[in-house]
Each structure stands twice: as structure tokens, then as C-alpha cells.
Design a binder for these strands. Structure first.
Lengths: 219, 219
DNA sequence: GGATGTGAATGCATTCACAGCA
DNA sequence: TGCTGTGAATGCATTCACATCC
């Protein structure tokens, strides 16, 4: 419950937080009660100093001579990341990728629930997908307001991504996970994370061609 | 065709290369012949200095007073990234996400082609998915050798990811795009890119809770 | 002894700023 | 004038190393 000052926290540290949480949950499943910065770091490919420094940005969670309490860290990390409560998420794009997102089992346990699906295609509207009725884009604003949705997954073709994103933002969405291969230009108040699978493969292509670099670096 | 020394190139610069290429292709579709570092940077949220510095790591592509020739840059960037030739890619995991990857139209044009699909599920083996026959994991080694495959997309449940990844590496795979929510521990010669969609949403969650940071930063 | 937490030191990446070319 | 290419300067992030505590 510390007064986090995000401007003092390196962005990379925030990204690593998610991995710490994921790994802590794995340690918990293995029955470990405490974990040292070295153990945690090794399991993720970070140094122990890195782990300790990152933790220190958010508070004092460890016990000297002992390590970090697994259970408590999970609670803390969830709180910091804001996933100790469940987020309602909306999905735009009921194609193959949209279906995969909807079917993904991993969201619930991490604090996310897709509660609405939208598509522009008249043939899809009204049909059901994993128990959710596919809605027309005209219903966007009403649904976002009614269920106070702040996060959206954008799985539409590149040509429509920018336009849909703008509508989402106007309707109150504050964070977008974008799968379309375009750079979205949005107001700074909106957080955007883009995943372009072709870009991911290009990176691999480069590193396979020039193996000197990148000691198994995980994005 | 310069002698690229990857050890002299900042990793972040390599990541941006893909975005430069993507954007250049967009400029090309708009019919532009040349683009300045400022135009390119603005369109991606980078500074002009950043763009010029990045380019300079790989050669001298621009013309003072004019900018960068779009067509030629596309050729160059593809060559640097190694996507001027098509990579054969294999897919492990014929679930929803696997299906989405297989159906994705964006791969071909960027130099990737999924040529084989594998799954552990007996019920799926032998069935077809987008014209590819789903193969058992026992066929992994033979197929990789026969089609000289170097890249793989891993879309299997978390529990099996590590094990399958090890097999892929032993069979000669040199780059893995991993969608399973685990950190893979592999030899340094293997390039790994991981996409954990829950982690992506967690990042958004954090930034929505603490909007001070991140001026619409795109991962 | 074994581990954390953290200022100080180091190492990278970005940005500046300007010489030089079209 | 307009823009690139690049050393030099700055600014961040990581790592070191050690005081501190169980």
C-alpha cells in the first residue's frame, strides 16, 4: 500500500514485475514458502541484484537471511499491478485470433475477464461465441459504459485498427492490447501494448542470421 | 551487404528495425518515394535522431537534403532482417491460437510460411488444418530435417512448453516464438521471443492505475 | 552464514548539435 | 535550405559492493 511514484520506476522494471508474479505463482504451486532474489532471478534470466532493485522500487518485501515470502509477494505484486480485482475486458474482432483470446483459459486466474465481443461483419453479429453474443460496433459506447470497461483487446484487420481504436478511446477505454500490425496514434492518457507476430518472427530471423547477439533473450 | 557486427548494435535498435520496415511498406502503399527521419520517426513515436542513429548502425542509406528512399530501404531492411527469403516455420499446438496463426494472412508477405503443424492430441493427429495435416510429435525430427526448418511457433499449454521446446532445439530449431506463459530455459544459441497475453494485459492494468507514466508507449 | 536494501559506480542507449553534402 | 551521419554529452538502467539485519 506504499505510495508508488511510477515516474521513479524504470519502465523495464514494471515489465519485469509481471514475470516475477508469474514465477512466484509457479513457486507457490511447487510448495515453496520463501524464495531468494538469486533463485527468482536465475529462473527468469535476471541477476539477483536486478530482482532486489526492482522490488525496492515498490517497497520492502524481503527478509534478510531468508528471502521473499512467496504467498505475500503474490498478493503484493497483484496489488501493484492492479490485478487483485478482476478487470472487465472487451474484445473487438471475432476472427480466429479473437476466438483464441476468448477461449484462453489463462485470463481468469490473472484477473481479466472478457465480457463483450464486437465485430463489424453483419454475418457474425447476433451469433454466439463462447457464450457471448457478438455485438455490432454501434453498441460499443453503451456496453463500455454499462459494464465500466477500461481495457480492450483489438483483433481487427490493420485497415480498421486505428479507427476502431479511436472509437474505443472516445468511449472511455484506457488500455488497448493491439494485435493489428500498425502503430496506433492515441492520446498519452491511453496505454497501448502492441503484439505483431510477424515482427516477433522477424526478430528471430535476425538473431538466427547473426547468432553473436542475444543470449536466449526472452522478450 | 555491409559487414553487420550485431555486437555493436543495441538490441533495442534491432527491435525498431522491424517497425521501420513495416512503416516503410505503409509509406510505399501511399506512393511516397522518399521519407525523412522526422516523418518516419513521428509516425512511430521515435525521435528523428533515433531513426538516423539506428540506420547508421547498418549502413548509409539516406541522402542529405532528401531523406531515405522508400523502395530501397524496404529492400535493405528485409535483407538485414533476413526476410528477403522466405522462412519455413513450424507450428506446435493445433488449438485455437495455433489455428489463428495458421490462418493469419500477414505472414506470407513478410517472409514466413507455416509448413507443418504438430500436436500431441491423438484425436487431432491426421486431421487437416488449413490444408496442412496435423502430425504427431514423433514426426518432429524428420520434418524439420526434410524441410530445413529453423523457426517454430510454440502454442502449447504451459505444462508442455519447456519439454517441447527442448525437443525442437535438439531437432535443429534455432528460433522460437513462444506463446506459453513460461520462461523457457534454452541454450544461448537459440533465440526466443515470448508473448504472454496475460502479461500484456497486466502492463495495461498497471498503467491505467498509474497514468503518470508511459506516454502511449507501444511495446 | 545468508540474505536483503541501497547509494555509488558502471555501462548502455538516447539525444544533442553540428559538420558536411545535395 | 533541408536533411543525413556521427562524435560528444546526457540520461537511464543495471550492476557492484557493502552496511545491515535475521
Amino acid at each position: 500500500m506504499e505510495p508508488i511514484r511510477p515516474d521513479l520506476v524504470p519502465n523495464p522494471a514494471v515489465r519485469r514485475l509481471s514475470f516475477y508474479l508469474r514465477q512466484m505463482e509457479s513457486f507457490q504451486r511447487k510448495g515453496l514458502a520463501t524464495v531468494s532474489s538469486k533463485q527468482l532471478g536465475d529462473s527468469l534470466g535476471f541477476t539477483d541484484a536486478q530482482v532486489r532493485k526492482d522490488m525496492s522500487y515498490f517497497g520492502q518485501f524481503g527478509h534478510p537471511g531468508v528471502g521473499y515470502p512467496v504467498e505475500e509477494m503474490i498478493t503484493q505484486l497483484r496489488h501493484i499491478l492492479g490485478t487483485d480485482k478482476t478487470w472487465n475486458v472487451l474484445l473487438v474482432g471475432a476472427g480466429n485470433l479473437g476466438r483464441a483470446m476468448l477461449a484462453y483459459r489463462g485470463f481468469d486466474v490473472r484477473g481479466f475477464r472478457i465480457v463483450a465481443v464486437f465485430d463489424a461483419d453483419r454475418n457474425k453479429i447476433g451469433k454466439k461465441m463462447a457464450s457471448l453474443m457478438i455485438q455490432p460496433l454501434t453498441a460499443l459506447e453503451k456496453t463500455i459504459a454499462a459494464q465500466s470497461i477500461r481495457l480492450a483487446i483489438l483483433a481487427v484487420p490493420a485497415e480498421h485498427a486505428e479507427e476502431v481504436a479511436n472509437r474505443l478511446v472516445e468511449a472511455g477505454i484506457r488500455g488497448i492490447l493491439n494485435f493489428a500490425p500498425v502503430t496506433l496514434t492515441l492520446p498519452p492518457k491511453v496505454a497501448v501494448n502492441s503484439v505483431d507476430v510477424a515482427v516477433q518472427l522477424e526478430q528471430l530471423s535476425f538473431h538466427v542470421n547473426f547468432p553473436a547477439l542475444e543470449p536466449s533473450g526472452q522478450s
